[in-house]
């Protein structure tokens, strides 16, 4: 990465605050508050920040839809009613119907679960993949660190959509492979966040103490350092969720994800392209759903980050590539 001291907000710098673990295992935040209290305070702070609250509300609605969508949708998401195609938005079909007479409103509501599952599993996968790499790189330093970081550099040299495209093409286009691709694309970023956290922690007293006790490297990494990188990971994951939705829907839009007749939001906009002018509602309503969801996750993620680390200003989101 850049070796300059550039005063721009650096997405790779993690908001690490050392959290001190005493011998009894009681974890305390930097202010001496117990660890659990820190997260309770996070909840209170979100409620007090208007933009984060709006984000929380949007994400909440999205999560509820993801949970109960198929049960509350007024119509079937996939059933075709040929007599009812291209119906304008009305009371019966609030968002109109598509080329096969399917109710757009129901498709969006049912599709929320798909979007959520895609984004959540992809984010989880990137954490599972990136965290060990970051821990190992940061803890061992030396040539292992050098090799791993040069590898992440190489992966980050490609815009994320291009890398995701190449991966999905290789694996074949399917939902599972979209999850794998998005996970692989975002894993280097997770690895960097965890690495910088680990670098800051590895010389802390509680780690030195563990080393002096003769604990193994594996024990120190997973039992002493990992729990203390949770806060930056939460920040990163909440911001990643929005981007995972963005990348996954972009891939579906390009025809490399869910296959018809799945109510995938990106796929819906792709299918609507043939009828852009004839039935603009086919594009407009899924667009609003996607935009609103990403806005929600971004507001919430920014809020959580500002609360957990006020020093970090608005994250720079270059290299997102979508």
């Amino acid at each position: 990465m850049s070796e300059l001291t550039v005063p721009t907000p650096d997405a790779n710098r993690s908001p690490t605050r050392p959290v001190i673990t005493s011998e009894t295992g009681d974890q305390r935040g930097p202010t001496g508050r117990p660890f659990g209290g820190r997260f309770r305070r996070l909840g209170e702070d979100i409620l007090r920040t208007p933009s984060a609250l709006v984000g929380l509300a949007i994400v909440g609605i999205f999560l509820v839809l993801a949970a109960v969508g198929p049960y509350v949708a007024p119509h079937s998401a996939t059933e075709m009613v040929i007599t009812d195609k291209f119906a304008r938005p009305s009371l019966e079909h609030p968002f109109g119907t598509d080329a096969f007479g399917r109710d757009v409103f129901s498709r969006i509501i049912v599709g929320a679960r798909l979007s959520f599952l895609l984004a959540a599993t992809a984010t989880l996968f990137s954490i599972v993949l990136g965290t060990p790499l970051g821990l190992i790189a940061g803890y061992s330093r030396g040539w292992i660190d050098e090799v791993l970081m040069r590898l992440t550099d190489a992966l980050l040299a490609l815009p994320s959509i291009v890398l995701a495209l190449v991966i999905v093409t290789t694996l074949g286009s399917s939902l599972i492979n979209v999850i794998l691709a998005v996970g692989i694309v975002y894993a280097p970023r997770i690895a960097r966040v965890v690495r910088s956290g680990t670098l800051a922690l590895r010389d802390e007293e509680f780690v030195q103490a563990a080393r002096a006790r003769g604990e193994s490297g594996r024990y120190i990494i997973f039992s002493e350092i990992l729990p203390n990188t949770v806060a930056p990971l939460i920040v990163e994951a909440s911001i990643r969720m929005g981007f995972a939705i963005l990348l996954a829907t972009s891939l579906s839009f390009l025809g490399l994800g869910a296959s018809p007749p799945a109510p995938d939001w990106g796929l819906m906009i792709n299918e609507a392209r043939l009828h852009l002018f004839r039935a603009p509602w086919l594009t407009i309503f899924p667009s609003i759903a996607i935009a609103l969801t990403i806005v929600g996750f971004n507001l919430l993620g920014d809020g959580i980050r500002d609360i957990l680390d006020p020093r970090r200003v608005w994250a720079e989101r270059k290299s997102e590539g979508v």
Partner: peptide
């Protein structure tokens, strides 16, 4: 904030609808 949150395929499609015929 909206600019950064809205995917390009969404804003592009909407721009076409508004300025290229719709």
């Amino acid at each position: 904030f909206l600019g950064i949150s809205i995917p390009a395929f969404v804003s592009g499609s909407l721009l076409i609808i508004v300025f290229a015929g719709g």
